[in-house]
């Protein structure tokens, strides 16, 4: 298939960016979206031009490195997948594809389609853990956990930290990301000890970093490649309320 790509190019964080048009030809519909980007970049390099910078790594939908806002959707038009799992058979021959970086103030652009998501790491550092050291812990089966709770905790823990929720949200809210981590621990006995401090510190950090508020549009849930549920946001709000009342 032949496609017209309209790609955001920006030399650096402070440089001015613009859309640049690139045609690509003879793309197999079995190729992945990023393989199509590879083909474009190979052509650019062969012509002595600078390839388009974009983040990617595992290319199987788990590392959370890839991003891209494709035709108005984070991770493209297909459901429940990351950009690296998107295949060209989801597009039509001759189609124009608009490719942009995540757009959110707490995720500044580094170059072209790459953004800096270290704000997510900072939120986790504020409390996304159980404060135990290596060694000296009880036998694994000494902490029985209801299967339903373990399963729900796993649903929340499946978050890959890609930032699609923030990119999808008109307020650039990070509530889905933060609530997934808070929920994982709220559902497990291991997380109870520090529940109050965790939710307070993580929410405070989220606000400090300039993420917006949640206005219940559910765009984050709709665009999440791992189907993280907004029920986690409700759970975090409960945790937060309990923390403030205690």
């Amino acid at each position: 298939m032949d496609l017209k790509l309209k790609i955001w190019r920006q030399a650096g964080p402070d440089a001015e960016g613009k859309f640049v048009h690139y045609p690509v030809h003879n793309i197999s519909q079995d190729a992945s979206f990023l393989e199509m980007m590879d083909i474009l970049n190979e052509e650019l390099v062969a012509n002595g031009e600078e390839p388009v910078a974009f983040d990617h790594d595992c290319r199987e939908g788990i590392c959370g490195m890839c991003s891209l806002f494709i035709n108005g959707y984070p991770h493209g038009p297909d459901d429940s997948i990351t950009t690296c799992q998107l295949h060209m058979r989801k597009f039509k021959d001759g189609e124009t594809i608009v490719i942009e970086p995540w757009r959110a103030k707490p995720f500044p652009i580094i170059k072209d389609l790459m953004v800096d998501r270290s704000a997510f790491d900072e939120i986790i550092q504020a409390g996304g853990y159980v404060s135990i050291n290596t060694g000296g812990v009880p036998d694994a089966n000494a902490i029985p956990i209801k299967k339903e709770h373990a399963d729900l905790a796993m649903d929340a823990a499946a978050c890959i930290g890609c930032g699609a929720c923030v990119a999808a949200c008109k307020n650039a809210s990070a509530m889905l990301f933060v609530s997934a981590k808070v929920s994982q621990f709220a559902l497990l006995p291991q997380g109870k000890i520090e529940a109050k401090l965790r939710v307070e510190n993580m929410v405070a950090k989220m606000d400090d970093l300039g993420f917006g508020n949640c206005t219940n549009t559910y765009a984050c849930e709709a665009e999440c490649p791992k189907d993280i549920s907004i029920a986690n946001i409700a759970r975090m709000n409960r945790e937060f309320l309990v923390a403030k009342l205690s």
């Binding site: 853990y129 159980v130 135990i132 290596t134 060694g135 812990v137 009880p138 036998d139 694994a140 902490i143 373990a150 399963d151 905790a153 796993m154 823990a157 994982q184 621990f185 497990l188 291991q190 997380g191």
Partner: peptide
């Protein structure tokens, strides 16, 4: 043991 104590949802 360590991973369970950390909250890994096995």
């Amino acid at each position: 043991d360590q991973c369970v104590a950390q909250g890994v949802p096995f």
